[in-house]
């Protein structure tokens, strides 16, 4: 069964992550409509050790997904280095040859190469491009034929409604997982601490620069030698990303930007559908099969329930409580309740 035939039967396309071929299989078996992944190099924004796909694994993954009626989307979504674009153009060629359904791209040079050399390759604009206005989305659509835009996680539902009224491009939004609170593709916080860029080398808070130290029950999480947070005995831990660090400012210690929480917008699926959103996305290519299976199953149940007017908010939250960073959830910017 191809996605073209299943797409009519679901109100929202469920786009799920895969960091390994085993995770891709788990996502397909759990009911993902589409699965996104990337190559094992700097061309994608989850360039972590041991993660991602070789070209051979991608080709096999496309076939595995197809057997389950799912499509594969490949992220080539970092920004190519000036004067050294070969790694990115080679990745584009490999995606085109793999039979993947679409490629997720952010960089103008990569978009141009793909549109010029592989005009039949479907292009999705990565969240890394941070396109949130009708002008920018329409520019990408008109110039490169981009057919879908992944929206930044800084927009409210009302802003998405307004945007969708002014564009013809499909929109995809994140609904679960790690929450980037900055304008993606333009954040350099991690670069300052580690010297490595999320946008150029694909690693925000690279694990090689992370260390944890437990002392008398208190766990210190550090990035590039800087202590980002300390967790007392019994307190749930988080990954030391600077935007979720606990800092002292004006005599007060607090999470200045965002708490170490995970996005969970399960309660907003009906609103997102009504807002004209085409696809919902789960974050977490760096997470394991157990996470993928559990989260995909929960959201597939929620998406299937939409047609019958069911809201599965409580069921989804109960199923996923243990999966979230900090053990807590937020609806992020969708409800604009941030401080």
């Amino acid at each position: 069964m191809s996605l073209e035939t299943t797409q009519d039967s679901h109100l929202l396309e469920l786009v799920c992550p895969a960091g390994t071929p085993a995770a891709l299989k788990a996502a397909a078996e759990a009911g993902a409509h589409s699965i996104y992944c990337g190559f094992r190099n700097e061309t994608n924004a989850r360039n972590f050790p041991g993660l991602n796909f070789s070209e051979k694994e991608l080709n096999a993954g496309v076939k595995t997904a197809a057997r389950h009626g799912a499509n594969v989307l490949v992220a080539v979504n970092t920004f190519a280095r000036a004067g050294d674009t070969e790694l990115w153009t080679r990745a584009v060629d490999a995606v085109a040859a793999s039979g993947a359904h679409a490629m997720i791209v952010a960089d103008l040079a990569v978009l141009d190469y793909a549109a010029t050399h592989h005009p039949n390759l479907r292009l999705h604009l990565s969240v890394q491009a941070a396109a949130a206005t009708p002008e920018s989305v329409n520019f990408y659509a008109e110039t490169f034929g981009v057919q879908r835009v992944v929206l930044p996680r800084v927009m409210s539902v009302e802003e998405i409604v307004r945007l969708n009224k002014e564009i013809d491009t499909e929109t995809e939004v994140f609904v679960f997982g790690g929450l980037c609170v900055m304008t993606e593709g333009r954040c350099s916080l991690s670069s300052y601490a580690t010297g490595k860029s999320p946008n150029l080398t694909g690693v925000c808070s690279p694990p090689g620069d992370v260390d944890y130290q437990e002392n008398g029950g208190t766990l210190s999480a550090r990035l590039g030698g800087f202590t980002i947070d300390c967790f007392t005995q019994g307190e749930t831990a988080g990954y030391p990303t600077l935007c979720k660090g606990r800092f002292q400012a004006e005599g007060e210690t607090s999470y200045l930007f965002e708490d170490p929480v995970s996005l969970n917008a399960a309660s907003l699926l009906p609103k997102l559908h009504k807002a004209g959103v085409t696809a919902i996305k789960i974050e977490g290519r760096q997470r394991g099969k157990a996470y993928i299976s559990q989260v995909v199953k929960a959201f597939r149940t929620a998406v299937d329930g939409l047609r019958e007017g069911k809201t599965s908010e409580e069921e989804v939250s109960a199923m996923l409580a243990s999966m979230t960073e900090g053990g807590r959830e937020t609806t992020g910017a969708y409800k604009k309740i941030w401080r």
């Binding site: 090689g208 992370v210 831990a237 394991g288 053990g327």
Partner: peptide, 18 residues
């Protein structure tokens, strides 16, 4: 899930996180 049991501190990592 490795991350989940790390967040709940049922698993402790020391040394080279990479």
């Amino acid at each position: 899930d490795g991350d989940a049991v790390f967040f709940t501190r049922d698993l402790v990592i020391d040394g080279d996180t990479d």
